[in-house]
Simulated assay, not measured.
Amino acid sequence: MDTPRTHTGRSPLQLAALVVGIVFLLVGILGFIPGVTTNTDELEMAGHGSDAMLLGIFEVSILHNIVHLLFGIAGVVLSRTWSGARNYLIGGGVIYLLLFLYGLLISHDSPANFIPVNSADNWLHLVLGLGMVALGALLGRARTRTRL
């Protein structure tokens, strides 16, 4: 089976996974940069006690930033194949939807908020989850058979 390719040699699905992966890498890096992230002197390894805020909106910790970096690396690596890209987008989207539910169910001031998340994170996780699943499902349908 062949898929339509862009000028980069990647299918639109693979390109979407690559872009999402790069964005996660950037977010992971930006979470450590003073000025982009406020209160970096209060950046903790994990937990709701971390008062560092990416863009002054999203609560982050060292763990949270590392997860973004690893998620970004996974996207870049998995974008190399069509099935890897589809699995990354759909599977990653499901993970973010579960993270959205997790953020709704826990008290943000409790030890259960080890990631940490706040209301802005929760809504972003919902949008990311829905967007990634939609990209994986819609662009994944475009795979067509061609005759050799």
Rank of each mutant, 00 (worst) to 15 (best):
T40M: 01
D109S: 12
F114Y: 13
I22Y: 01
G131W: 09
R5Y: 04
T40E: 03
F24N: 12
E44N: 10
A120W: 14
N87Y: 13
N87F: 14
H7C: 10
P12V: 02
I90E: 13
L128M: 13
I73E: 02
G21Y: 00
D41M: 05
R86S: 07
V117F: 12
R143K: 15
Y88F: 15
S110Q: 07
G35D: 02
L130Q: 03
V19C: 00
G35F: 03
N65Q: 08
T81R: 02
W82L: 05
L18W: 10
H48V: 11
M132V: 04
V94C: 06
Y96Q: 08
M1F: 09
S110D: 12
G21Q: 00
G35T: 08
V76E: 09
S50R: 10
G28R: 02
L124N: 07
A137Y: 14
F114C: 02
G129I: 14
H125V: 10
A137E: 12
G28C: 03
L89G: 03
L63C: 05
L126Q: 01
E42T: 11
G49V: 07
G28F: 01
S61G: 04
V19E: 08
P116A: 00
F58Q: 02
G49S: 07
R10L: 15
G136Y: 13
F58K: 04
G129E: 08
T8N: 01
L13W: 05
A52N: 06
V67F: 03
R86I: 02
L70Y: 00
M53C: 03
V36A: 01
L30G: 00
I95A: 13
G92A: 01
L89M: 05
V76F: 04
N122V: 02
N113L: 05
A46S: 12
G28K: 05
T37A: 06
I22C: 01
I73C: 06
I66N: 04
G103T: 05
F114G: 03
V27R: 12
S61N: 09
D2N: 11
L128A: 05
L18E: 09
G31W: 10
V23R: 04
A120Y: 14
N118A: 08
L101P: 02
N122E: 11
L101K: 06
A85L: 00
V127P: 02
L104P: 00
G136H: 13
F24D: 04
R80A: 14
N65G: 08
G84P: 06
V27K: 06
I57L: 15
V117I: 12
F71L: 13
H108S: 07
E44L: 15
A74P: 06
R5Q: 15
L130T: 06
L78W: 10
W123V: 04
A74Y: 03
S11E: 07
L130F: 11
I73D: 04
L78E: 06
S107H: 10
D121E: 07
A142W: 15
L70P: 04
G129W: 14
I62N: 11
L54C: 00
G35I: 07
